[in-house]
Design a protein around this nucleic acid. Structure first.
Lengths: 298, 298
DNA sequence: GCACGTCCATAGCCCATGGTTATCACGGAA
DNA sequence: TTCCGTGATAACCATGGGCTATGGACGTGC
C-alpha cells in the first residue's frame, strides 16, 4: 500500500548500479540489508524487480515500469524538503504583530517599524487583527509573536511587556444621551448606566474597562457584550449602553452619533507591547526594544 | 531524509480534516498512533506542521508548504502501483519463445502459433534468439518461457519437452573440400576431419554434434568453436573445419561456398519444444500442446 | 457550580521491521 | 583444485509503530 522512501532510494540505486554490493556501498548499508529490503519491496509489489544470478543483475519488466516513478517520487521529496526548509526560513524572519483594535495611535507603528527594520532589514512584519475575546491579541494561542495589549492581563505571569502609552479613560456615549452635551463627567454619574463589556474570556481586562474596582463594591450593569469596534459603535448608537475606552482609541468610535468625554475619578489605562514570557527569539526582543524606544513610557 | 508514504498519508488526512480523532478514524488507526506519527514527522522535518489546542487544529506555514507536495507524492505512488500492476499483467500474458537458430523449418512457428492463439487469444508471443553457448536457449537463466532445443540436453531433469522433429544429421563442407562433390558420405570418412564444435557449456549437446559416441573412442579434432549461424558459415568457408547439422537447418548454411551432404552411419537428431520442469503456467503447457499437435512426432 | 463530554497528549506494552555480523552457495578465474 | 566475488541466509538486536488505558485542559448542560 504505502512505500517507504528509503525503499525507492534503494531500488533506484540497485537499478542504476545493477550490482547489489556496489549499491550497498553507495547507500552506506550492508549488502544483506539491501538484499532484504529489495526482497521485501518485491514481495509487497507481488513481482520481482530484478533478475539476479551469480554474474549479473538485470531489471525485470516490472522493475523497468517502476523505475521512472521511483525516481520522480525521490525528486518530489527533495523538492518537498526544499519547500519545508524555505517555509521554516520564512517563519524565522516573519514577526506577527497582534492587535485588538485597528492600527491607530497616529504613527506609532511606522515609528517602531523604522527602528526595528534598522536592526532586522530582512524581517517581514505582519499585522494581525485579533478579536476582543482574546485579551492577549493572539499571544496566548501562538497566532501572534508580539501584540499590543491593554493592561492588566489575565495571565501576567505568562507574558513580558513594555508599556508604550498611558492614557486617561474616556466614556463613549450616544449623541442622544442626557450626558452627551457635557464637557466631562464624574465616574460616579455613570454608576447606574448600562455598560458595554468585553467577553468574559477577557477576565480582569473586562473588569478594567467596566472600572469594577472604582464602583465601591456595586455590581456593574452590563448592557451588551462587544468584541470589535464596529459592534461597539452599533451598540452605542443603538442605546444598549455606554463604555469606557482609552483616549488613543477615541478616533475609532467618534463617528456620527457618538461622542466621547473625559471622566474624572478614574485611573489611566496602560497600553503595552507584549510577548510570551518563554519567547527568547531575538526578533521579538528587538521589536520590544524598538517599541520602547519609539514611545518612552511617560 | 526519507519519508514513509504512510506518514504523508496521515499528514494529508489530518490536514484535510483538521481533527486528529476524525482523521484517525478515516485512516483506521487509533488516535494516539496518529498523533505520534505526526509528531515524529514534525520532529524529522524540524518544524511543527499543525498548531493544535483543545478546540482546534490549524496548519502552520510549514504544513501549508508541505501539503501540496505530500498530495502529489501520494498520487504518484498510486500511479506507480498502477504501472506495476499493468506490467505484471503484461508479463502474465507474454510468452517468450527461445530458439537457437533462426525461425526456420518452413511454417512450423506459424502453425503452432495459430493453434496456440485459438486457446489464448490475448497472449503475446515473443521470439528470442539465443546464443549457442546456452543449449537450453534461455530456459536455464529464465530469459525464455519455452524454447526450441536440440536433444540431448545437459540437464534433462530440469526440463520437460515434446519432440517436434526428427531429422538426419547432414555434414556441411566448404565447396572446395575434396568430399564436396559427393552425393553422400560415410561418417567414417569424416573421422580425421577437423570439426566445428559448440562451446563447452553446451555439454552433451556439443558431443552430439561432434558425434563423439560414433567415433569408436577416438577423440574428435576441433577446428574451431562456434556459437551462431554466421560464425559457422565463416568458419566453413574459411576452411577451419566441417560440421554436422540437422537436415532442417541446412537452408541456413547452404549459401554460396558451402554444401551439405547426407551422412551414412549416424543416428538422427531430435528437435524439441522444451520448458522448465517446475513451470506450471497454463500458457506454457498450452504452447507445448500446440507444438505437439502441429508436428506430431514422427 | 459541578459532573460530564470532547479532544489531544502521554505512558507502557508488544511484535514486526530493518539494521548488523557471520556464513553459505555458487560460478568463474587462476 | 583453490580462491575470489557475488548474492542469499541465519541469528541477533534496537527501534518503530501499533495498541489500550489514562491524563489534562477546556467547553457544556443539568
Amino acid at each position: 500500500m504505502d512505500v517507504h522512501g528509503r525503499d525507492l532510494r534503494y531500488f533506484a540505486a540497485v537499478a542504476q548500479e545493477l550490482h547489489f554490493t556496489r549499491a550497498a556501498e553507495l547507500l552506506f548499508v550492508s549488502q544483506p540489508a539491501l538484499s532484504k529490503q529489495i526482497r521485501m519491496l518485491e514481495r509487497a509489489l507481488g513481482a520481482p524487480l530484478f533478475d539476479r544470478d551469480h554474474r549479473e543483475v538485470r531489471l525485470t519488466a516490472v522493475g523497468t515500469a517502476l523505475l521512472p516513478h521511483a525516481r520522480r517520487m525521490l525528486e518530489q521529496w527533495t523538492e518537498a524538503e526544499r519547500a519545508v526548509a524555505a517555509a521554516k526560513a520564512a517563519a524565522r524572519t516573519r514577526l506577527v504583530i497582534g492587535m485588538s483594535t485597528g492600527p491607530g495611535r497616529n504613527g506609532m507603528l511606522p515609528a517602531i517599524r523604522s527602528r526595528f527594520t534598522a536592526d532586522h532589514p530582512d524581517a517581514q512584519l505582519v499585522l494581525r487583527q485579533v478579536d476582543w475575546t482574546d485579551p492577549s491579541a493572539g499571544l496566548a494561542d501562538g497566532s501572534s509573536d508580539v501584540a499590543f495589549v491593554w493592561l492588566p492581563q489575565p495571565e501576567p505571569e505568562r507574558l513580558g511587556w513594555v508599556v508604550v502609552a498611558q492614557e486617561p479613560r474616556l466614556v463613549a456615549l450616544p449623541e442622544s444621551h442626557p450626558l452627551a452635551g457635557r464637557e466631562s463627567v464624574d465616574f460616579a454619574e455613570l454608576l447606574d448606566q448600562p455598560f458595554l463589556a468585553l467577553p468574559p474570556t477577557a477576565g480582569v481586562l473586562r473588569d478594567h474597562w467596566l472600572a469594577t474596582d472604582e464602583r465601591g463594591g456595586r455590581e456593574p450593569l452590563v448592557g451588551a457584550e462587544i468584541s470589535g469596534v464596529d459592534e461597539t459603535y452599533e451598540a452605542l448608537v443603538g442605546g444598549q449602553g455606554v463604555c469606557l475606552l482609552g483616549a488613543g482609541n477615541a478616533p475609532l468610535l467618534t463617528r456620527g452619533g457618538v461622542v466621547t468625554l473625559p471622566v474624572r475619578g478614574l485611573s489611566p489605562s496602560r497600553f503595552a507591547l507584549a510577548w510570551r514570557a518563554g519567547d527568547t527569539r531575538p526578533m521579538v526582543h528587538a521589536y520590544a526594544k524598538a517599541a520602547q524606544a519609539a514611545h518612552p513610557c511617560r
